[in-house]
Amino acid sequence: MKKYQFIYSIIFSLITLPIFAQKDEGIISFERVVHYPKIIARLPYLSQEEKDRVKLTWGSDDEWKEKMKLAFSPNKSLYTYLNEQGESEDGTWAWRNDDLIITRDFEKEKKTEVIEMLGKTYIVDDSLHTPSWKVMNQIKDVAGYICMKAVTEDTIKKQKITAWFAGDIPVSAGPERYFGLPGAILELDVNDGDVVITATKVEFKKLEKELILPKSKGKKIKDIDYDNLLRNHIKDSIKSQRNPYWAIRY
């Protein structure tokens, strides 16, 4: 609880200059790149020969890209697809995206996530559980912002998570299900490059509808149910020698 007693919010939120006030609300566009051969290479039931075969066959066409967006304000955030449908590069082919809307309310410490996985739409309604971040000694530039490195771990999917957050954007929002750093997360690396989500554009503006969760239908669950669903699915799939990640987001 005390993590959100931001000192600045107590001391400065009322008196800071307008130039700073503008810098905490807007939309960040992301590109999410998935490297399937790397994910397949992590499946424990495949032999080295089979993994190499996948690697060779995919060659340089090993990336799947999609565009995402994160709407943020000091108190709220909403993460979803940039477009309402998936499209081929030239726009002539379109497909349906799996439901995915991730919202955070930092003030009320609440979250609602609409996630389609395992052939169903779930609504995860729970209080906020902040990941345990470790802040590292590296800095780099992402989309024109100097970012610091922080790492954590997904204990369900056994993934190493690396986040690069911008101290200049003083909100705790981030892409996918990650948040809780002293600045907006502009790059998220899942498992050493298996999936990389990088900010392409940061736009500051006053938001209106962008932070409101549209009406969604789905099965209501809590974080603990969500974790159990994933844990069982991954366990069963690995045991059945199926790739679990065709049916859940990596």
């Binding site: 470790k134 590292m136 750093l181």
Partner: peptide, 12 residues
């Protein structure tokens, strides 16, 4: 011990 983030804020 392991650089885990406990609290953060900003200078005035």
């Amino acid at each position: 011990k392991d650089s885990t983030l406990v609290n953060f804020g900003r200078t005035d």
